[in-house]
């Protein structure tokens, strides 16, 4: 099974990125600075007011930052796996022209997955660097947050690829954003402990990948102890969503583009 074509699909996405990387990278730095300043320092000063100076034993900014990091990976994955993919599939027909060459559908799919990982990695590293500047990373082991965040992005991006492969127009994207991405951003442990929520929201949070990603990333950057079993469950959920997503996405691409 040849995968050389996947590398060229990635190369094509990098050619595209080369045209926009400056602006995109600046946003990747500015956005976490704004969020951490406004919500971490600003809002956090209200939260840690009076006797309760800490949230779960740390300043609010330090608590918030890893949650935002994982949520940003989710949002980046959502952005990359919906409109751009459908455009190449349906509107600009880029995949049709690629598939007229020896490149196979699975190589197209894996190339796009590779680009998704690269894209999430860029955003993650930028965000992580900002966290270091805000002293929100408590130990060198916090570096583990980088691969864990990228995995969180993949756990969303891969199933979203499968979703996109089944869309005939873009209305489904608004629904996915409204009913999955935004609610998770708000409820999956990014801003406050999930245990504070009504049970139905807790269940919603824990059956999707973000809460698991947040838990792992937070444990890494705060160097806080985490039960091995809990860590294993979180990791399994992320790997499961990624693996199943890749399988379904590949099938979706084959069905959509194989005719």
């Amino acid at each position: 099974m040849s995968l050389g074509g996947a590398a060229v699909v990635l190369e094509r996405d990098l050619l595209n990125y080369r045209r926009t990387w400056r602006g995109s990278l600046i946003v990747s730095f500015i956005s976490p600075v704004l969020f951490l300043a406004a919500m971490g320092l600003g809002l956090g000063s209200l939260i840690s007011h009076g006797q309760h100076r800490l949230v779960e034993g740390v300043p609010y900014l330090d608590y918030l930052a890893p949650g935002l990091l994982a949520a940003t990976a989710m949002q980046t994955a959502a952005l990359e796996s919906m409109y751009p993919i459908l455009a190449k599939m349906m509107w600009d027909k880029i995949y049709d022209s690629i598939l007229a060459t020896p490149v196979q559908v699975r190589e197209v799919f894996l190339g796009e997955i590779a680009w998704l990982v690269v894209r999430v990695a860029i955003v993650t590293v930028a965000f992580f660097a900002v966290m270091v500047l805000f002293s929100a990373v408590h130990s060198p082991l916090g570096l583990l947050a980088v691969p864990l965040t990228i995995l969180t992005g993949l756990a969303f991006g891969a199933p979203f690829f499968a979703y996109t492969a089944n869309q005939r127009n873009d209305t489904g994207f608004a629904a996915l954003n409204r009913f999955v991405v935004i609610p998770l951003f708000l409820l999956a442990g990014t801003f406050f402990p999930i245990a504070n929520l009504p049970l139905v929201f807790q269940v919603f949070a824990w059956v999707t990948p973000l809460a698991h990603g947040v838990a792992l990333v937070r444990a890494a950057t705060l160097a806080s102890p985490i039960a091995p079993l809990a860590a294993a469950v979180h990791l399994t959920v992320l790997l499961g969503y990624s693996g199943v997503g890749i399988g379904l996405g590949l099938r979706g691409f084959e069905r959509r583009l194989g005719e």
Partner: peptide, 20 residues
């Protein structure tokens, strides 16, 4: 079916790459 996200020359370049 041209690639609107990359330049005229890169359209040909990347297509050559797809052919190995």
């Amino acid at each position: 079916t041209l690639d609107l996200e990359i330049s005229v020359e890169d359209n040909l370049f990347i297509y050559g790459r797809f052919f190995g």
